[in-house]
Nucleic acid binder design. Structure first.
Lengths: 199, 199
DNA sequence: CGTTGTTATGTAACAACGTTATGCTAATCT
DNA sequence: AGATTAGCATAACGTTGTTACATAACAACG
C-alpha cells in the first residue's frame, strides 16, 4: 500500500542525533541549530521535523544518549570487595564523563536549550542510571560501612555533592585540573566520613 | 559642545534591568527578548544596545543584581554564638533565595542563555558573596567545631552540596516541598558530621 | 541666539533561527 | 503496472539578535 515507515527506526535518525552530539560537544548549545544539524548530515531541516517532531525532540534523543553513555561508564566500573571504594569509583566515572563532554553534561543536568525540558516520561527513562548509584550505596549500608539509612536518600545526598562539584568545576570555580581533582576527593572524603557508621 | 552622556548611569538602565528581571522570573529565559524588555519599559530595542552593548550586557546586569540580592539575604542572617547554626542558617537563606526565583537562580549558576557567559571580571564581582560563606566556615574552624582545614576549601565543599541540592530540587528530583526540605536538612547534617572535629 | 558637534532614541532593515505548507520522489501493496 | 503514501527538499512565515540610518535633543561656542 505504501512506502515503509522506517520513520522511527531508520539510521538517519541515529545520524542526526550523532551530528547534533558532535555539534554540541564541539561548539556548544548555541551552534545546535536544526539547519546545521541537517547540513552536517547532508539532509534538509525537514528531516528533523519528520523524525523528531521538533528541535526539542532531537535534543531529547541526545539527552537520552548522554545518559546511556553515563550508564555504560557506570557499568564499566568493576565491583570489588570494598563497597566504599566502589562507590568512589562510580563517582570518578561520573566526573570523568562530565569533564569529557561539558556541553553534554550541561544538557543532561542543566537547561542550556530552553526549548527542551525533560518531561516525566523522559525523566523515568534515566532512572536506571541513578539506580546504579543507589545499589552501590545499598551495599555500603548492608555491609555496615555506612550508618543505617534508606539507600535512595543517601544516594541523593551523594548525587547532589557530585553534581555540585561538577557544576563548579565546569564553571572553572575549582581552579586548575589538579586542584579541582583535590576538591573532589576531599569533598567525598568528608561526605564518606559523615555517612560512616559509628565505630 | 555635546549632550551629556548619562549613558551609563541613567535610570533607564535600571528600569531595563528590572523589566528583564520580571520577565525572566515570570516566564523564563525564553521570554527574555530584547523586544519584550524594551516594550515593557516603553522604549525601543535600540536603548538596550546603546546602554548595554548587546543582550548579553543586559543579562550580565541581571546576573549581578541576582548576586546582590543573595548577598543581602546573607547579610540578613543574624550572627549568634553558635557558628555551625549560623552556617546552616546561611544555607537556608541560599535555598530560600533559589526557590523564590528559580529562573534567576539558573541564570546565576547555570547557563540558560547561551549568549551570556560571565567573564573573569564578572566572576570577580560575585566573590564577596562567596566570602560571606568562607567567613562563616572560618568561624566554625576557629571555634573548634570543625576539624582544622582551610576555610575556603571547606566552603567550596559546602557550596557544592548546596548548589547540587538546589539544582536537583528545581528539577523536581527531590519530591514535594516537605521531602525536599528533609533532603536538604539531612544532607547538611551528614556534611556537618563529616566536617566536625573528632571528639 | 543660532550654529555645531555629540548623544539618545526610534524606524526599518538584515541575517539567522524554529517551524510549516507545499509538492516531488520513490518505495511498497494490490 | 498503477495507485498510494512515507520521505524528503524547496521555499516561505514569523521571531530573534543586531545594526544602518535618520531624527531629535542637548550643551558649548561664536
Amino acid at each position: 500500500m505504501a512506502r515503509p515507515r522506517n520513520r522511527d527506526y531508520g539510521e538517519l535518525r541515529h545520524e542526526l542525533v550523532d551530528a547534533g552530539g558532535r555539534l554540541l560537544a564541539a561548539e556548544g548549545p548555541a551552534a545546535l541549530t536544526t539547519r546545521r544539524v541537517a547540513q552536517e548530515t547532508g539532509v534538509s531541516t525537514t528531516a528533523v521535523y519528520q523524525l523528531f517532531g521538533d528541535k526539542a525532540g532531537l535534543v531529547r534523543e541526545m539527552f537520552l544518549a548522554g545518559f546511556e553513555r553515563l550508564a555504560e561508564a557506570f557499568a564499566a566500573v568493576p565491583r570489588t570487595s570494598d563497597p566504599v571504594a566502589d562507590l568512589l569509583a562510580l563517582g570518578h566515572a561520573y566526573r570523568a564523563n562530565a569533564l569529557a563532554n561539558p556541553h553534554l553534561y550541561e544538557l543532561m543536568f542543566g537547561r542550556p536549550i530552553p526549548a527542551f525540558q525533560p518531561d516525566a516520561a523522559t525523566a523515568a527513562l534515566i532512572q536506571p542510571t541513578f539506580d546504579t548509584l543507589v545499589a552501590a550505596v545499598a551495599r555500603c549500608v548492608q555491609e555496615g560501612e555506612f550508618a543505617p539509612g534508606e539507600p535512595y536518600v543517601l544516594a541523593v545526598r551523594i548525587n547532589a555533592l557530585a553534581h555540585g562539584l561538577c557544576s563548579l568545576d565546569l564553571r572553572g570555580a575549582l581552579g586548575g585540573p589538579d586542584e579541582a581533582r583535590r576538591h573532589w576527593d576531599d569533598a567525598f572524603d568528608t561526605m564518606m566520613r559523615g555517612l560512616r557508621a559509628a565505630e
